[in-house]
């Protein structure tokens, strides 16, 4: 009985675990190596730190206060809206929008654009890895 319960729990945990596809995992490994090179004490990406980055407010490229949530909102399972054009943005959470975080070129493009828009600079490997770890678990 205990064994069965254990098995069920393990299966549920595995099903619930959010995994990157192979190309994305390769990209995450590259970010990880870069983060380790920048800081030898780096031990891995962290969703909590990613969330903190995601909600933090900064003076963006346009000189106004904004955060990732300005367009994407705080619930990533919901869609958002482009703050400049009002055009709808589909949900970022892979659980709600399976196409998210599946294409490395798309991910790199939007990280570059959106870090510049919100932080007025590009993101570091640590920041990008943390944010992606936060999003993949949504």
């Amino acid at each position: 009985m205990k064994k069965t319960l254990c098995f069920i729990l393990l299966t549920l945990t595995l099903l619930n675990a959010k995994a990157f596809n192979a190309p994305m995992q390769t990209y995450m490994n590259e970010l990880s190596a870069e983060a380790k090179a920048a800081n030898p004490n780096f031990t891995g990406f962290d969703a909590k730190r990613g969330e903190a980055i995601f909600v933090s407010k900064h003076t963006g490229k346009k000189g106004t206060q904004m955060s990732c949530t300005t367009c994407h909102t705080t619930n990533l399972k919901n869609g958002g809206q482009n703050v400049n054009t009002n055009k709808p943005i589909t949900a970022l959470a892979p659980s709600a929008n399976p196409a998210r975080l599946t294409d490395v070129a798309e991910v790199e493009k939007w990280l570059r654009r959106n870090f510049n828009d919100v932080f007025a600079r590009e993101g570091s490997a640590l920041e990008k890895g943390d944010v992606l770890t936060y999003i993949i678990n949504q």
Binding site: K61, K62, N84, A105, K109, R112, R113, N114, N116, D117
Partner: peptide, 12 residues
């Protein structure tokens, strides 16, 4: 495109 009406819309 990297400064597209105030936002970064850069492409490859």
């Amino acid at each position: 495109l990297s400064d597209h009406f105030g936002t970064d819309a850069s492409l490859g």
